[in-house]
């Protein structure tokens, strides 16, 4: 399905978000909604609260005021369902150094229950063919990042929430990831991302500036 066909559906919407950390107001009155086929890039200086907002939207952080709706239902009441439909990747990749690329990916995608074949294909996709049984401590930072990103090939979640996914990637990796984001969005998926990387080429891109505005 392309975004042009059929009625667009609001996946996630937030209104009147207020969040403070240790007596400092990060944002207040913040509203945002995302429909399929959209990509929202959160931008702003360091400390503006990008990661906090991202975690809040992912349902990880519940210390805030305001409303979060998933398909027009309060998100926390349907959290397990929401968790199954959104993929969250923090700036930490949860890759264990003494396990192999394959073992790590198997853990990362445990909830999707992929077949062995899917796992191998996903690793091949991120240019790690031949490294399946290599312990991750022998891989470079960029390669470890790719192990984590291989999840994107396996996940069936319509909403991706990604925190600085371009970190440590080389040029090929960057263009691969851009391609993945574009493909996901044009297949009717949605992405919320924090990144200092320019994502101009992707249709459906919106930028949300944090910090200084409040």
């Amino acid at each position: 399905m392309t975004p042009q066909q059929g009625a667009q559906q609001t996946l996630l919407s937030a209104s009147d978000l207020y969040c403070e950390r240790d007596d400092r107001v990060l944002f207040e009155g913040l509203a945002l909604s995302i429909t399929d086929g959209e990509l929202i890039q959160l931008a702003g200086p360091n400390g503006a609260g990008k990661t906090t907002l991202l975690r809040l939207l992912a349902g990880l952080n519940r210390d805030f005021e305001g409303q979060l709706l998933w398909h027009d239902v309060p998100l926390m009441t349907v959290y397990p369902e929401y968790a199954g439909n959104r993929l969250y990747m923090g700036h930490l990749s949860a890759v264990k150094k003494s396990l192999t690329a394959l073992e790590n990916l198997r853990w990362l995608t445990a909830q999707d229950r992929p077949s062995e074949k899917q796992l191998w294909e996903a690793l091949e996709h991120v240019a790690l063919a031949g490294y399946e049984h290599t312990p991750c401590l022998q891989l470079s930072a960029g390669q470890q990042r790719r192990v984590a990103l291989a999840r994107l090939k396996i996940s069936r979640a319509p909403l991706w929430i990604l925190d600085e996914p371009f970190t440590a990637l080389d040029k090929d990796g960057v263009s691969w990831l851009e391609g993945e984001l574009q493909a996901h969005v044009s297949n009717g998926g949605a992405v919320i991302i924090t990144s200092h990387h320019a994502l101009e080429g992707i249709p459906g891109l919106r930028r949300l500036e944090l910090g200084g505005v409040v």
Binding site: G59, A83, L108, Q111
Partner: peptide
């Protein structure tokens, strides 16, 4: 906690 596994547990909804 340090490598982000905790975040993934919380995100998993389990």
């Amino acid at each position: 906690v340090e490598d982000g596994s905790l975040e993934q547990w919380l995100a998993s909804g389990e």
